[in-house]
C-alpha cells in the first residue's frame, strides 16, 4: 500500500496530507492523555506499535504471484481505539519512508490516510459491530484485523485511481487495474493478519487479563451493564 515517493501529483499529495493531519494531531492528543492517565498502558501501547512494525516489514507471497505485506493496525485499534493507531501507523510509515525508501514523504499523507486512519477505523467498526451482536471475541478480532488490512489496500487503489484515471476507461478502469494489483493480492494476506492478530490477542488474554478488562476488550463478570467497572462500559 506504499505509494512511492513522488508518485502522487503535488495537488493530490497536499490534499491527502491536509486530510490526514487532523487525525494524527487528534491521535497524538489521545495518546498523551492515555499515557498520562494510565501510565501502565505504556507497555501495551509499545507492544501494539511493535506489532505494526513487525507485520508491515513482512512481505509475503500471495495468490496473484506478487508480494505484499500486512499492516498490523487492527490490534492496536481494537485495544486502544483508532486515534492511537493514527500515531503508531504514522511512526511506522515514517521509518519506512526515511530509511527504506519505501513509501515517501510526499506520499506520507496518502499512506497515513489508508494505513493509519481508514484501516484502523474500518477494522474497529467491524469489531464493535460484531461484538454488539455477541459474536465471540476472537471471531470479532479476526474480522476486525482482516478488514483493517484489506480496507487499507482498497483505499490505496482509490487514491491511485483518482490521481491516474485511465485515458479510455476513466476512474473506474484505473480502479480495476490498481484494485487487481493491491486488493486481490491482499485477500490471503488479510486472512494471515487476522490469524496473527488472534494469536496475539489469545496471548494477551492469558497474560494481561486486567489490562484487557480495563480497556473494555474483556467484559467483567457482571456483564455489559457492570457499574463497578465504569471504564469497561464507557469504551
Amino acid at each position: 500500500m506504499h505509494i512511492a515517493e513522488g508518485f502522487l501529483p503535488p495537488a493530490h499529495a497536499i490534499a491527502w496530507g491536509v486530510a490526514s493531519a487532523p487525525f494524527v494531531v487528534h491521535g497524538v492528543r489521545s495518546l498523551t492523555r492515555e499515557v498520562r492517565e494510565h501510565p501502565e498502558s505504556t507497555l501495551l501501547l509499545g507492544a501494539s506499535g511493535a506489532f505494526t512494525f513487525v507485520l508491515s516489514a513482512l512481505k509475503l507471497p500471495s495468490v496473484t504471484g506478487s508480494c505484499s505485506h500486512p499492516t498490523g493496525t487492527g490490534l492496536g485499534a481494537i485495544l486502544f481505539r483508532p486515534p492511537i493507531m493514527a500515531v503508531l501507523g504514522t511512526i511506522t510509515l515514517l521509518f519506512q519512508a526515511l530509511l527504506l525508501a519505501h513509501g515517501g514523504l510526499t506520499t506520507l499523507g496518502a499512506n497515513v490516510f489508508s494505513m493509519a486512519i481508514v484501516g484502523p477505523w474500518a477494522g474497529y467498526a467491524v469489531y464493535r459491530l460484531l461484538r454488539r451482536y455477541d459474536v465471540p471475541l476472537m471471531v470479532a478480532v479476526f474480522f476486525g484485523a482482516f478488514v483493517a488490512d484489506l480496507s487499507t489496500y482498497c483505499v490505496t487503489s482509490v487514491q491511485l485511481a483518482l490521481a491516474f484515471p485511465d485515458p479510455s476507461s476513466g476512474f473506474l478502469g484505473a480502479l480495476g487495474k490498481f484494485g487487481s494489483i493491491f486488493a486481490v493480492t491482499q485477500i490471503p494476506l488479510a486472512v494471515s493478519e487476522g490469524l496473527l492478530t488472534v494469536i496475539v490477542m489469545r496471548l494477551l488474554v492469558q497474560s494481561s487479563k486486567g489490562e484487557l478488562a480495563r480497556l473494555g476488550v474483556l467484559l467483567t463478570k457482571a456483564g455489559k451493564s457492570s457499574t463497578d467497572e465504569p471504564e469497561a462500559v464507557a469504551r
Binding site: 506504499h2 505509494i3 512511492a4 506478487s66 491516474f164 487495474k177 490498481f178 494489483i181
Partner: peptide, 11 residues
Amino acid sequence: FAGADAEAETA
C-alpha cells in the same frame, strides 16, 4: 513475486 508497490508504479 515482485512487490505489489512496484507493480503499481509500473501500472
